[in-house]
């Protein structure tokens, strides 16, 4: 579904990583770990087309993103649910409309009523549905971002530190949701520092853990 082939990325003068390859196949579950500043967020952004690699190739469902028309890129993004680290929302809209935004931009707003109540219940935000994002705590925003990322039932879910600001109980609930989606054939890629989350996931599904270090991506599953 999403493939990175021999990808390198440079910021200004310095090279963040190079020669990096990754394939997110249907039903795969990846964790991405590594020290702060190693480039985890950058790697995720390459995976959903928010950044273009300095060299190498990123492909969405077999089609290279280099030179891809912006409309085609937008349509591909509808197949990818993203949870940003900074959880950006449309601050003037209520939470419910923010969560339903992917359906709205896809012209399927009428379907929101069918999914929203359950989804908001899942992430424990039912009573905050009419509140504006700036009125929510960091943890609530993260849960809302996850709800928004999965409302379209995307084929790939990419999350950057999705449990960074939430308690253990809620992170387990969110993990259960991701595991459930993964069992339905969705590919999941999560960048995290939370080793307990990785262990909890390993107990439920087959997980591959990758570590981004010294500009390289290495398998790190065995030592967890």
């Amino acid at each position: 579904m999403i493939e990175l082939r021999d990808v390198a990325y440079s910021y200004g003068g310095g090279e963040l990583f190079s020669g990096l390859s990754l394939s997110l196949a249907p039903g795969s579950f990846h964790f991405l770990t590594g020290p702060s500043g190693a480039g985890k967020t950058t790697l995720l952004k390459l995976c959903y087309g928010d950044l273009v690699p300095t060299s190498g190739e990123v492909a969405f469902w077999g089609e290279a993103t280099t030179g891809m028309a912006r409309d085609a890129l937008a349509l591909n993004r509808r197949r990818i649910g993203v949870v940003h680290q900074d959880c950006q929302f449309l601050d003037h809209l209520p939470l419910a409309e923010n969560v339903a935004l992917p359906l709205t931009v896809a012209g399927r707003h009428h379907e929101a009523a069918a999914y929203l109540p359950d989804l908001l219940g899942w992430v424990g935000l039912t009573r905050h549905a009419e509140r504006r994002p700036p009125e929510l705590s960091g943890g609530e925003r993260q849960r809302a971002a996850l709800a928004r990322a999965v409302i379209m039932s995307p084929e790939v879910i990419i999350a950057d530190e999705p449990t960074g600001n939430i308690d253990w109980e809620m992170s387990q609930r969110l993990l259960s949701l991701l595991v459930e989606l993964n069992r339905m054939g969705k590919a999941v890629l999560i960048a995290t520092h939370d080793l307990n989350l990785i262990r909890a996931a390993k107990a439920q599904v087959s997980v591959r853990t990758l570590r981004l270090k010294d500009r390289q991506l290495i398998a790190a599953g065995a030592d967890l």
Partner: peptide, 11 residues
Amino acid sequence: RVLRLVGARDA
């Protein structure tokens, strides 16, 4: 940026 993130087309 948010609209693009969720798959909004330029149009």
